[in-house]
Design a protein around this nucleic acid. Sequence first.
DNA 1: GCACCCTACGTTGCGTACAACATCGAACGG
DNA 2: CCGTTCGATGTTGTACGCAACGTAGGGTGC
Lengths: 219, 219
Amino acid sequence: MTSTERRAGRASERALADLREAILDGDLPAGAHLGEVEIAERLGLSRTPVREALTRLAAEGLVELEAHRGARVTRFSREDLDGIFDVRLALEPQATARAAAHVTAADLAALDALARRMQELGAPGPDQDLDALVGLNRDFHARLLALAHAPALAAALANVVHTPVVTRTFRTYDPDSLARSLAHHTEIVAALRAGDGDWAGAVMRCHLGNARAVMVEQR
Amino acid sequence: MTSTERRAGRASERALADLREAILDGDLPAGAHLGEVEIAERLGLSRTPVREALTRLAAEGLVELEAHRGARVTRFSREDLDGIFDVRLALEPQATARAAAHVTAADLAALDALARRMQELGAPGPDQDLDALVGLNRDFHARLLALAHAPALAAALANVVHTPVVTRTFRTYDPDSLARSLAHHTEIVAALRAGDGDWAGAVMRCHLGNARAVMVEQR
DNA sequence: GCACCCTACGTTGCGTACAACATCGAACGG
DNA sequence: CCGTTCGATGTTGTACGCAACGTAGGGTGC
């Protein structure tokens, strides 16, 4: 999600995407040790592109590098998480409000489809699939952020909101909080359709407040 | 290339610090082309650590990498600058307000010294030294940010507020704006001394508004 | 038995060589 | 004379080898 995706022939790029995906999906748990040689062999590359990928992941904050002791997937404490929500609350409502000025009919349709699908998958019952929500949620927020047309704002968020934490915790939502969260998405779409940025921003603020409560309680 | 040079610290760290300083101080102007070999030879290193430094600078947004075409110092448009101020306005006042809760007498003394020195150096007359303000200003804001004890907030700002732009523009302040700006620093110290975070945050908001006006007008 | 040192190992950090790619210039053909 | 193509050249991208560093384990001295 960084703005510097344009470099590096396939190898380094692939290592970066692969590692990021593995971390975000939880295949590499927090605190896991990442050896350069191990990763390189697993991807069929040399250490060089792997090393570059790790450097960039470290800049994003997804991994931590210790001198001569390798890389570890970053661990987040409750305080870290709280600080992250402070930043999100300061920036994401503003971004959402701005999105109202740029949103097109096609964007609305796409966001609406995502929101509705999430409500289907999140509804209690045999068809409930909390894991599938993860990707959809990421997509929804990413689209919203892009619609703000505020690159600096997006960059600030991207380097702090390490979605692995937020992403993998849908299972920890209690039924009421989950229902609220999914309803917020739908309400945001409604607000954007009405062209009311203030409304959309306010809903996002609710959305984050609700999420923060779940996260903080969980730990 | 001698073994004594290497002892000073990790090569890539030095390359990173050196390059960042050169960009922030304007020795490397915006848009300047950065060749890996050229930098490597200038620093007496191989391309490897230089390359790592460039990768990290790209993640910070200070340079842009184009595939097989090298790195360039990032150029900022007026829109970019405006977006950066949006982020600063969303985060820095909050950070300043939080600093009030953690500030110690020693911190206050250091901040006060910085603010007073800046007022001396900024005052019109033969002793005026606008260039010296640059470093002091960076230091002041960095200390303030650290006092907030909010790592996520600091990280979000660090990856967006590319001070090169802000830093080198003290010469473009008109006398009134400059006087206001320096007075704000002093007032922030006063607010912190009074333990009034709201006041401190409000001053920071003024400070940024004033700076934004200067920047936007300038371009 | 305990503490300390010292050695052996695995890891990262850096240097160097080679390959792939992009750009620019000149020669050729229309 | 202009456009196109092919080669020359410089750059970045990748692989690999060596050295430095940190760590752990065994051995020795007390």
